[in-house]
């Protein structure tokens, strides 16, 4: 038993240093799970789409009229937004601020929630891997807000750590007051906590929290959560800020992977010629 524990801890430490066994498990186990689940999910999708598009058509005409009315309103809003966008570009140029780097969006389907016996962490599996652009740490968003980030990526399947998991940390800013903080998950069906907000920092209930874009992990300005309560403590240096995630993470079906397509300029190291220096 002692020998087995010794061997296990040796393997564990070696893997933490090299990551070989994790990569092996990702390329075999995770891909096998993906290959097993994807056909079934595809079949289910086809059946549901057939039902929705060809059989269950009650109320489609009414819904169509509603959507047309909404579209007309949106066209007005887009026209206004285009003006704002043009003004923003002019102001940025004026202030010599570099625009945000390019971010590419890739659609992905959720093929499983919390799979396996190690399902204590809040996670989902996606049908896209690093060959499709889902590399480790790639931000994952839904149409209404942030979801989490890719934790492990195989060639065609990846796993995502959701923002409601207690191990998730995302740097955010409050949209109106620009107060920074870190959003931390507290578990499933729980609110999120915004930590490290000093007592005198301005914040308001109902304010939207957006990604700060620091360290390039997430694109700047992505909605994450909305503040639902703020408490001030006499014994703490920080406010206790609770927020509600904008996305319903329990029923995720489709998500977007947000890959940074900005070209990173490699650091060009000049050849160090000591003789030349000596000559100079």
């Amino acid at each position: 038993m002692v020998l087995v524990l010794f061997l296990y801890l040796s393997l564990f430490t070696w893997n933490l240093r090299t990551g070989y066994v994790d990569r092996l498990a990702t390329h075999t186990g995770l891909e096998f799970v993906g290959a097993v689940l994807k056909p079934g999910k595809w079949l289910r999708l086809q059946v549901v789409e057939f039902w929705d598009h060809y059989i269950d058509l009650v109320g489609v005409r009414k819904r169509n009229d509603e959507l047309e009315a909404q579209m007309r309103e949106i066209l007005f809003a887009v026209a206004g937004a285009k003006e704002d966008q043009a003004e923003l570009a002019r102001l940025r140029e004026l202030l010599s601020i570099a625009p945000p780097t390019g971010w590419e969006r890739i659609g992905a389907r959720v093929i499983a929630h919390r799979l396996g016996s190690q399902a204590e962490l809040e996670s989902v599996l996606l049908d896209k891997g690093y060959l499709d652009g889902a590399s480790v740490h790639t931000p994952v968003v839904a149409y209404d807000g942030a979801v989490g980030r890719v934790f492990r990526a195989g060639p065609y399947t990846s796993s995502v750590l959701l923002l409601t998991d207690p191990n998730s940390r995302i740097a955010v800013l409050s949209q109106d007051n620009r107060t920074p903080g870190i959003i931390v998950g507290l578990g499933p069906r729980h609110q999120l906590e915004m930590r490290y907000v000093s007592l005198n920092a301005p914040l308001a209930v109902g304010e939207l929290l957006v990604t700060s874009g620091q360290a390039g992990a997430f694109p700047k300005g992505l909605p994450v959560a909305r503040i639902v309560s703020i408490e001030y403590s006499d014994i703490s240096l920080f406010q206790k800020v609770m927020a509600e995630p904008l996305t319903n993470l329990e029923n995720l079906e489709e998500v977007l992977l947000v890959g940074n397509t900005a070209e990173v300029q490699p650091f060009e190291e000049k050849p160090h010629d000591s003789r030349q220096e000596a000559d100079d």
């Binding site: 564990f12 186990g29 995770l30 016996s117 962490l121």
Partner: peptide, 21 residues
């Protein structure tokens, strides 16, 4: 089966090995 569990899970390598052991 250990590879399946380790690949699909988010923990660093090891729990599945100890589970089956």
């Amino acid at each position: 089966f250990s590879l399946v569990h380790e690949g699909a899970g988010l923990l660093a390598f090891g729990p599945a090995v100890l589970w089956y052991a």
